[in-house]
Write a protein that binds this DNA or RNA. Sequence first.
DNA 1: AACTCATACAACCGCCATTCC
DNA 2: CGGAATGGCGGTTGTATGAGT
Length: 229
Amino acid sequence: MGWGGYGHDEHGWRKGPWTPEEDKLLSEYVKLYGDGRWSSVSKCTGLKRSGKSCRLRWVNYLRPGLKRGQLTPQEEGIIIELHALWGNKWSTIASYLPGRTDNEIKNYWRTHFKKRSAPSAAFPRHYDHQQQTIVINSDQSSPSAATDDNNQLQEQIQLVADPLLAVDCQKQKQQEEDKNSTCEMMMNPGNYNQWPAQQYQLVPAAFGSGPIVEDWLWSGLWNFNDAIQ
DNA sequence: AACTCATACAACCGCCATTCC
DNA sequence: CGGAATGGCGGTTGTATGAGT
């Protein structure tokens, strides 16, 4: 990944790709002083990099816990859904994907979706709708199982009309009702032609846990995207 | 084998909000 | 209180790489 060699800006800061030596210096600095005092990195380490450049390098590349490699279908789904919610709030979206950076997500989105307009057309080429979507209420012989699923789903669904919070009782009550109806729709998707408005889409699987719930959410995601076309 | 194109990735830029002095 | 410094974020650019032709 070259930048055509190294250069310096008007302030004398080095530019271009980082060397292993620079990475080592930066890592050692953060180990000693923590991440946050970027402007003093050059003073303390002799690194000829601006604070901004150091921060970027740390956040996007050196920070511990970063995941490497291709995003999983689940992560892709989360990105798609959160982007529908918040737009290009990459750092916000990244906060729901542990180990992924806003830069990575931004790059991914631009590469895969930028040129496409319709949300449903935006799904990655390797995402398999048929594979991800499960048959809802397939176990008709066991009503109790369906009820359990419903209860489990109820716990996982959060309505996010206002992602920051429902403020008053009226809103909370309304949200509770919407939550119930959304759950009902997910349990019996065939009975509904129209999905709720965008503000009532589901919180992505990252908030919940377990393959069943994730599959439910995935199928809901697809219905939702079809609905908003 | 050579060329083209799409994708992945790293890094920079500019703007804005916050903090500091 | 106001200006400067700093940090954070979204947008953009440039190059490497691999697949397809």
